[in-house]
Structures are given as structure tokens and as C-alpha cells.
Simulated assay, not measured.
Amino acid sequence: MIEYRVRTVPDFTALGQLRTAAWNGPDDGQSWPAVLARSLTWVTAHEGERLVGFVNVAWDGGAHAFLLDTTVHPDVRRRGVGLRLVRAAAGSARQGGAYWLHVDFEPHLRDFYVACGFRSTDAGLLRLA
């Protein structure tokens, strides 16, 4: 059974390990305390004590929130974990005062985010580095 926790501070080493497993890139977890200190909310998913999912919601301090870092461990994908993470994050952002929830995604994730309730809009992107 998967348990979802809203705004419960995760073990940052475990979060780094989750991100490393899911994204195939190194993450030692050390940057997460500063990230979450500036976040509106976040949601973690746990199978027993094992961290298997995470999503973060950054915000502008007002009406706009931004869904970031949706992560599900490869061992538990295709079981609805990502969908439930995003829905819990959206509900928590709404309770936190956000009016809009934005997300950027790569084309292969379009169906997932549409299933989460997002719709496509025109947007702009400026690369800064």
C-alpha cells in the first residue's frame, strides 16, 4: 500500500536516491532543504518506510504555483502513484491559496499530465544559460 504525505519533510538522502533512480542522474539530496524552504507545498509517496514518489510545488507567493520534479521510482510506475501525487499537490496548493497550477513537460508526458487535469496553453520560454 502506498501512503501519501503532504508537507512532511522527507529524508533528504532518500529523496536524492529516489531522484537518482528515477532520473538516471546523481542527486545526493543536499540541495533539497533550500528548495523546500521556498516551496508552497510538496507531496511524498511511501511504500512502508521506503520513499517511492515525490512532487514539489513552487510558487510566486500569490495566485500562481508551479508543479516541479514529479518523480516516481521505476519499481512502482504504472500504478497511479504519479497521478495521486499530482492530485494531492494540486489540492494542497489550492488550500495554500494558489489559483493557477502550471506545469512544463516534455511531449512524451503529455498524456500523463492531461490525465492529471492539465490542459495545453500557449506559453513562452527564455533560456537563461
Rank of each mutant, 00 (worst) to 15 (best):
L40W: 03
V114W: 10
L51Y: 02
L36E: 02
A88I: 12
P33A: 05
E47S: 14
F105I: 09
G53R: 05
A90E: 09
W42M: 02
P26R: 12
Y4R: 06
G124T: 15
W23A: 01
L40D: 02
L36V: 05
H64R: 15
H64Q: 13
L83H: 07
T13V: 15
T121V: 14
G53T: 07
L67D: 01
R119H: 14
H64Y: 15
V76H: 04
R5W: 11
D122L: 11
S120D: 14
W59R: 06
R7N: 15
V9K: 10
S92Y: 06
R38F: 05
G124P: 11
G29E: 01
G97R: 08
A129Y: 11
Q95T: 14
H73G: 04
G82N: 08
V114S: 10
L68S: 13
L128N: 06
T44K: 00
A21F: 03
A90H: 08
R119C: 13
G117L: 05
R79V: 09
V57Y: 07
T41Q: 00
G61W: 10
G80P: 04
V114F: 10
L36M: 09
L125I: 14
L67I: 01
R38S: 10
G80L: 06
S39M: 00
A65V: 01
R7P: 11
G97M: 08
D27L: 00
A58D: 09
A93K: 01
R87S: 11
V55R: 04
G96H: 03
V114E: 12
D69G: 07
N24C: 10
G80M: 07
S92G: 07
P74Y: 04
E3Q: 14
V103N: 03
S39D: 01
R78T: 15
V86K: 05
T20Y: 00
R87C: 09
F66L: 14
D60T: 08
H108I: 12
A21R: 03
D69E: 11
F54M: 03
D28N: 13
G53N: 08
D28E: 10
R84C: 05
L36Q: 05
G16D: 02
P26M: 12
D122W: 09
G61Y: 12
V57P: 06
A93P: 01
G16W: 01
V52L: 05
L67V: 02
L15H: 00
G25F: 11
R94M: 14
F105V: 09
A123M: 09
R84M: 07
H102D: 13
W59K: 05
D28V: 08
L36R: 05
R5A: 12
W42I: 01
Q95W: 14
D27G: 01
V52H: 03
G48D: 09
L36F: 07
A123H: 12
S39C: 02
Q17V: 03
Q17F: 00
Q17E: 08
E47D: 15
R38P: 03
G29M: 00
L36S: 04
P107L: 07
R5P: 10
L18N: 07
I2E: 11
A45M: 06
L109N: 06
V6M: 07
A22G: 03
E106F: 15
V55Q: 04
P74Q: 06
A123Q: 11
T13G: 11
G16Y: 01
D75Q: 09
N56D: 04
H102T: 12
L85W: 07
T71S: 00
F54H: 04
